[in-house]
């Protein structure tokens, strides 16, 4: 299958700390790709490199065959790489409509009103257009964040811990939502909730100390002894 995003030797240091250290990574067209790893493994730094929020020190990133290593973040978004924030980052003082409209008009949508309605429909928030985003419940704010990502109609949607803080009922709906997005959109999912990742992902990459520990299907990852030692074992013992 064709790679949408292909990163080679991606590296980023913060002072003496190697946050991301020579990571090779392939995101294939139409898959849901999980990215997991212990806290501080470099997950957020890695996707910040992909989305352009943090400049790359060495290595390269290709998007559909084009080199985007040094492309500024806002142009990457236009080129089809959307990023939803880990910490909910909607515009609290703007209406839900304006929040999503900002995303829809960014790529020059013809009918902003219709596209906003469509994006809100897909996350199940139709009818809340005029509410101020800051007054929504936490779950709704997370969904709004996803709706903003959808309205960008990206080829790659990077979701940074989207289920964090959601109730279990909301998580089920969320999983259905993510499944409905592929294969038109390719999903890179950073997630702490193992059940969600194992359930959703086609393939999983495990990061540890800024390096790739393993790549494979959920089954392979579950069986992988190294991963169990480094991560799952600890996690299960703790949780």
């Amino acid at each position: 299958m064709a790679a949408v995003i292909e990163a080679r030797g991606l590296t980023r240091y913060f002072g003496g700390l190697r946050a991301v250290d020579g990571v090779d990574f392939r995101l294939q067209q139409g898959e849901i790709h999980g990215l997991i790893g212990p806290n501080g493994a470099g997950k957020t730094t890695f996707v910040s490199l992909l989305s352009g929020r943090v400049p790359v020190q060495s290595g390269s990133i290709m998007l559909n065959g084009t080199d985007i290593t040094h492309m500024p973040a806002h142009l990457r978004v236009r080129a089809g790489v959307a990023y939803t924030f880990q910490i909910t980052s909607v515009y609290p003082r703007l209406s839900v409509f304006d929040n999503v409209a900002l995303a829809a008009q960014s790529r020059g949508a013809g009918d902003v009103v219709a596209e906003v309605a469509d994006a809100l429909n897909r996350v199940g928030m139709a009818g809340l257009e005029q509410a101020l985003a800051g007054t929504l419940s936490y779950g709704h704010q997370r969904l709004l964040e996803v709706a903003m990502g959808l309205a960008l109609q990206p080829s790659v949607l990077i979701l940074d811990e989207p289920t964090q803080g959601l109730a279990s009922g909301e998580i089920a709906g969320f999983k259905a939502l993510i499944r409905s997005l592929v294969p038109q959109t390719t999903i890179l999912l950073i997630e702490h909730n193992m059940d969600v990742v194992m359930d959703l992902a086609d393939r999983i990459t495990v990061l540890n100390f800024g390096q790739v520990l393993a790549v494979g299907t959920p089954e392979e990852i579950r069986m992988n002894r190294v991963v169990q030692d480094a991560y799952l074992g600890v996690d299960h013992a703790a949780g």
């Binding site: 989305s51 929020r53 500024p72 973040a73 806002h74 142009l75 978004v77 236009r78 959307a82 990023y83 924030f85 980052s89 909607v90 515009y91 609290p92 003082r93 703007l94 304006d98 409209a101 900002l102 995303a103 008009q105 960014s106 790529r107 903003m148 960008l152």
Partner: peptide, 21 residues
Amino acid sequence: GRVMVAMRENEERSRMLGYDP
């Protein structure tokens, strides 16, 4: 005008929606 307000409210978020601040 909407984008201008978005810049005022949260520049980093607006950048990640594809706008050049």
